[in-house]
Design a protein around this nucleic acid. Sequence first.
RNA 1: GGGGCGGUGGCCAAGUGGCUAAGGCACUGGAUUGCAAAUCCAGCACGCGCGGGUUCGAAUCCCGCUCGCCCCUCCA
Length: 501
Amino acid sequence: MSIRFYNSLSNSVEDFQPVESDRVRMYSCGPTVYDFAHIGNFRSFLFADVIRRTLEFFGHDVHHVMNITDVGHMTDDSNADGGGEDKMESAAQRIKEDKKSGKVPEGAVDNPDDPYQIADYYTKAFLEDAQMLGLKVAFEPENILKATDNIDIMQDMITELIEKGHAYVGPDGVVYFSVESFDDYGKLSGNTLENLLSGAGGRINETDQSNKKHPADFMLWKADPSHIMKWDSPWGTGYPGWHIECSCMARDRLGKDVIDIHTGGEDLIFPHHECEIAQSRGATGEDAFARFWMHARFLMVEGEKMSKSKGNFWTVRDVLEGRATGINVHPAVLRLELIKSHYRSNMNFTKKGLQDSANVVRKLTEFRAKLEAAADGQTAEVTLDHPILKQFGEALADDLNFSKAIAVVLPWASSEIENPAEALAVLDKINSVLAVAPLGDEVETAADEGGLDVDALCKAMDEARAAKDWGKSDAIRDELQAAGYDVKSSPEGTVATKRLA
RNA sequence: GGGGCGGUGGCCAAGUGGCUAAGGCACUGGAUUGCAAAUCCAGCACGCGCGGGUUCGAAUCCCGCUCGCCCCUCCA
């Protein structure tokens, strides 16, 4: 079966073939670590995870790397006042305040003025979030690449670009990439040099531009000894441009000039990915940097753009800890919610959607438990020719059609299963992609953080029911429900399970 | 103004030229239940953003419009 992916480079769905048949090389633009990652970030990261897992489902060996941008870049230098604040510096301010209010745990950041400590703090938080949400690469420290660990290879590539005539040192001492030296600039985004000029409007700042040969030329290295993070270089003590880290780390760690897949959010298409292509191809001389460029659409929250001013801006922690919807959300539920709709549509993050996802996770978890009991420790071998896996795989191969894939699984999970050992193997294979069932142990344990003894309460409810003491039975049920449990009574007894969202 | 993506029932969506278009959730009624939950049965859309065109035939292809989203400035 051929795998088809939408390639932003051609704006069409293409058959996927790796450059080398035995190994897929894939690079994902990861987080900046000036703050906690939000659910929109994770939609993009999980999208990358799901590509990787899909390729592995079909038997590919995937080398997936993701970068951590821990260099402090400027927030905005186009303001009228010429202000512009370093993101790492603004993070330092925020952490100082959060330390005072106790939001930052004691000892987590000793010195908020040390940008490396801030970066470490948020990097650690990101990896925790990522692991909870089942991002495979987050369990592989060797594939998580920090920009600050790779300044040397950035300088090497900048040197290479200058030697090859793709970059120059401007009158201001800044090293710029010359977009006119690269014929295919604009091919990914459609923002060719002509289009950029015609659409420029009044946006270009004259003084900023006077040092560049072309207004679209972008920075590779800026000497600035006053910058909070700085390194020595042939062009003065300063810091690298925003785009260069990805070009360098992809080439270095994946070990090839041409990689198979590069992923990111849709906003990265321009300028970030356009510039990466210019840099990489300028340095390597190859006719491609990545064969496939894949981008995830933004998510909306309850039909609106997610923004801090609207109060609908949620970090992963906000959602999991119940600040977004008023109830704690299991990580598997958030994972499913963020991967279940097609990556090329805007997804709408809603409380209702989360509850739908929780039902699906619950259903799959119970299905697994049922199969495990019925299979009695037996396991079976299955191949992708199994009818369910065949349909599931076909949906995945069709540009990651997850809605369809899940629509294959759910009716199957409600049907009569003749061979539980085989079904269990099928479910394992499906779950190697979805990664939502089984859940971690923490959900199924009886002891609640509130000290509720759920098993004892269920037993007490059964006793009350046996004695037809409905008032007492209902009171216990109310107590359990108030604590966030779903309570089911059947002839076999009462079972309470923690609500997942 | 320029570059791109999308608009199918209340919500999420399958379907990308051809039998009366659709699955899940939600909702409503019934069975069951001490009451719930779960489960089972039944009900729920005269229509695929709008208008043209191509075709024997279009949600599906083409043109125009409209609405939403992203980018052109840091941003997943």
